[in-house]
């Protein structure tokens, strides 16, 4: 353990695996995001994620957005365990018929004011699964959607960019 701590201290902050230009962009976007969240949400934006039939890559990227490179949490974004603590619902995947009820009850469990974000092409209109017999329709036909983050899957950086652009509006 001591060895590891020592090596950590020598290596310092781990932005070494990314390009300096990208690191700068993350830092700049993050600063902007932080001040926007501070202004509009009084310090923190709490997000509850719901997978309504995604392939899993969208989740993987949302998780990556919380790794030490992007670390959305330091800018004031928290992914919360309960819809009762959430300001926003983040939906991934086409809506499988099996998830329709769960999606609606998760939304209903959130306190107002609340809003819905869709993440990934599937969540916009079903994406590659649009024509399936088991897709219940686009999220926006079921819940009021305020922001869509495009991509298949959207990278952590594009999630960050989309959030900043949206909060600036």
């Amino acid at each position: 353990m001591l060895n590891i701590l020592k090596s950590r201290l020598i290596k310092g902050v781990v932005t070494r695996t990314i390009e300096p230009a990208q690191a700068q962009e993350i830092a700049a976007l993050g600063a902007e995001l932080e001040s926007l969240i501070h202004k509009r949400f009084r310090r923190s934006l709490a997000i509850r994620e719901v997978d309504t039939g995604s392939c899993g890559a969208c989740e993987s990227e949302i998780i990556a957005a919380n790794n030490p490179i992007y670390d959305l949490q330091r800018f004031g974004i928290q992914f919360v365990a309960s819809p009762r603590h959430a300001d926003a619902l983040l939906v991934t995947g086409p809506v499988s018929r099996n998830m329709l009820t769960a999606l609606k009850s998760t939304y209903d469990a959130m306190p107002a004011p609340k809003f819905v974000i869709t993440c990934g092409d599937c969540a916009l209109d079903g994406g590659v699964f649009k024509d399936s017999y088991y897709v219940a329709g686009a999220v926006k036909a079921i819940l009021p959607v305020t922001l869509h983050i495009p991509g298949c899957p959207p990278s952590p950086l594009s999630i960050l960019r989309a959030l900043v652009a949206f909060l600036k509006r």
Binding site: D51, T52, G53, S54, G93, P94, S96, R97, N98, M99, A102, V128, F129, D131, S132, Y133, Y134, V135
Partner: peptide, 10 residues
Amino acid sequence: GFTHRGVEKL
């Protein structure tokens, strides 16, 4: 089965 989306048919 919650993420069933009819892949084989597609």
